[in-house]
Design a protein around this nucleic acid. Structure first.
Lengths: 72, 72
DNA sequence: TGTATTTACAACATATTTGTTGTATTGTTT
DNA sequence: AAACAATACAACAAATATGTTGTAAATACA
């Protein structure tokens, strides 16, 4: 189901963020967003856009190709 | 600018679709969508979601990691 | 030329993402 | 325990993606 794919992806992002020792607020700040934005993403309650993913990858210092692979 | 990234990505999708000899309508059909959806994507007028990209990759018979790489 | 196919674009309704504010809950540290 | 930091969640407005219909323009082909 779609909802599960989003939850899986969100969980993957959470792992990545933690592996880099960043708080939700810190990551959000790098993206010019707020903590709630990351929280919703990690909880799988939203379906992020391509541009959001590009910014996320940049803020996590990785390629978007690697980023989207976490949901697999 | 963001608009340019979307245009660049859309153009990349167009190349991929053409390389597989698919019309916009055919690709859309595989995704359960209509021709207009693909047209807006390729013209860079929309910012597709993660789930949309997953379906697009599947319909183009490729990995989402490869798919998002076309916009680079 | 004429016909069919493909692509482009616009407008509208609907659903959803995003931004924002506030706050509750959980976790950590002293 | 108390204080602080981090995370979760809800509700609202605004922006935007998506679905849909209609049609114009461009392209391919007989």
């Amino acid at each position: 189901m779609d909802k599960e794919r989003l939850q899986q992806f969100g969980e993957g992002i959470r792992q990545l963020r933690r592996s880099k020792n960043l708080t939700q607020a810190e990551l959000a700040s790098r993206m010019g967003r707020d903590q709630q934005s990351i929280q919703r993403l990690e909880s799988g309650r939203v379906n992020p856009t391509y541009l959001y993913l590009l910014e996320l990858a940049k803020s996590l210092e990785m390629d978007i190709s690697e980023l989207v692979a976490v949901g697999k």
